[in-house]
Amino acid sequence: MSTIYIPTPLRRLTNKQSRVQVEAATVREALQALDEAFPGIGERLLDANGEVKRFINVFVNDDNIHTLQGLDTPLNPNDKISIVPAMAGGTVKA
């Protein structure tokens, strides 16, 4: 089982859970499993082409999947997947 760390802004979609365990062979499968468990979270992470949105980073253990094999990065048991979105704080002055 791999553990996905859910960032605070997305925890309202995971019943406030900060960590979710999934069984998956790749990062792509892990995110699919997450979306099956918590429908709607996938579209927050991936764009229409199925790529990770450009204001979100996904890490396996300490490394960005950009420097690994992207969404096809294979997972080992006990791997930690971190989802790290851009945060700005404060008020969005629009």
Partner: peptide, 16 residues
Amino acid sequence: CLYPDPPPPGEVPSCA
């Protein structure tokens, strides 16, 4: 390098 594009307005909730 980390965040090539900003999130669309409203996609990320603010602290406010």
